[in-house]
Amino acid sequence: MPNTSSNPPLLKAIGFLMLSAFLFSIMGVCVRYASHTVDNASVVFFRNIFGLLIFLPLVFNKGLSHFKTEKLWMHTWRSIAGLAAMYGFFYAIAHLKLSNAMVFTYSSPIFIPLIAWLFLKEKITKPMLLAAAIGLIGVVFVAKPDDGFFNSISAIGLSASFLAAMAYVTVRALTHTEPPERIVFYFCVIGSLVSAIPMFWLWRPYTLHEIGLLAAAGILASISQMFMSYAYKMAPAGQIGPVNYSAIIFAGTWGYLFWQETPDHYSIIGFGFIILAIVLCSPLLQNRLAKQ
């Protein structure tokens, strides 16, 4: 492992990933409100199509040649995995507490080190495993397994988590040759084309309120993914993955503010573990723990 204590890009990667998680949690609020009246297939489609709109200025400025790629098959795989995860995640948001839905989605750091090791041959270190394990303990405290936690919706949420981890690792691989804006651009294009198929059968007129929520969700999600792509370009996926747990804290905050979902003492303890997992990703601690 490099001397991360003198590695500013790692600190920047952690900051970008936390900002990505923050924006993604706000997107979750928009999806939650939109899901009250809009079906899941339409939410996924509009999230992609509105997310694609933010690239129009870049296309006009740099031209379509900027988005040419020799990694189309990797973009396609990343898009399929990410889109499948999105369907599951949005379904969980619509049927679970926002914080619980985020718990499932952001459990992906548990899988990231293993997937990164299998496909990218990235080294799994003890600090990585420790951070992932502590984050998982925090997830359990926040979610508090009960009758409403382990059910069919939970299975969908956990499946989305695994698929999201595969997408994140693919993003890491793509960043070796592809700029972040190209990665997100292809995700939105492929996602829009694929998600248009099920949405077509459910099409109906939408209110301005619904369109506003869906547009906000799409734009926030794409900006969030841009920051995520920049983060994974700067640091190994397994090393910074646990920072994603911060989205659960953000989601808990929004759940309290908008739906009066008050965290109990177990949730507070869980947040503490999650914060500790994030702290363990810091350059100084990563370097010290790796030497032990």
Rank of each mutant, 00 (worst) to 15 (best):
Ile110Asn: 03
Trp77Cys: 10
Thr125Arg: 12
His66Pro: 00
Ser6Met: 12
Ser65Cys: 04
Ile248Gly: 01
Tyr206Leu: 15
Phe111Leu: 07
Ala155Gln: 08
Gly138Ile: 11
Leu130Ile: 10
Phe24Ile: 03
His75Asp: 14
Ala34Asp: 11
Tyr186Pro: 04
Ser195Phe: 07
Trp203Gln: 12
Thr253Tyr: 14
Lys233Gly: 15
Asp147Val: 12
Met234Glu: 11
Tyr87Met: 09
Met74Trp: 13
Cys188Asn: 15
Pro113Arg: 06
Ala215Ser: 12
Leu163Val: 00
Ala235Asn: 02
Gly148Thr: 05
Thr253Asp: 01
Cys30Glu: 07
Ala34Arg: 10
His176Leu: 06
Ser42Asp: 03
Phe250Cys: 14
Glu70Gln: 14
Ser99Phe: 01
Leu257Glu: 06
Thr105Gln: 10
Phe162Lys: 05
His209Gln: 09
Ile278Ser: 08
Ser192Pro: 00
Pro127Lys: 10
Gln260Thr: 09
Ile249Cys: 08
Leu52Thr: 01
Ala165Ser: 14
Ile93Met: 11
Tyr230Gly: 00
Pro57Val: 06
Cys188Thr: 15
Lys123Glu: 13
Val194Met: 14
Ser154Asp: 03
Ile248Ser: 01
Ser99Trp: 03
Asn3Gln: 14
Ala92His: 01
Phe258Leu: 15
Tyr106Gly: 06
Leu96Trp: 09
Arg172Met: 10
Met74Ala: 15
Gly241Pro: 02
Gly135Ile: 12
His209Ile: 08
Glu178Cys: 03
Phe50Val: 02
Ile14Met: 13
Phe22Gly: 01
Thr170Asp: 06
Val142Phe: 02
Gly218Cys: 13
Phe119Ala: 09
Ala85Pro: 11
Leu280Ile: 02
Leu72Cys: 03
Ala41Gly: 00
Trp201Cys: 03
Val189Cys: 11
Ser42Val: 04
Ser79Val: 10
Ala21Glu: 03
Ala41Phe: 09
Val38Ser: 08
Thr4Tyr: 15
Leu96Asp: 06
Lys144Thr: 03
Asn3Pro: 01
Trp201Asp: 01
Ala235Pro: 02
Val184Cys: 04
Tyr33Thr: 12
Gly191His: 06
Leu129Lys: 07
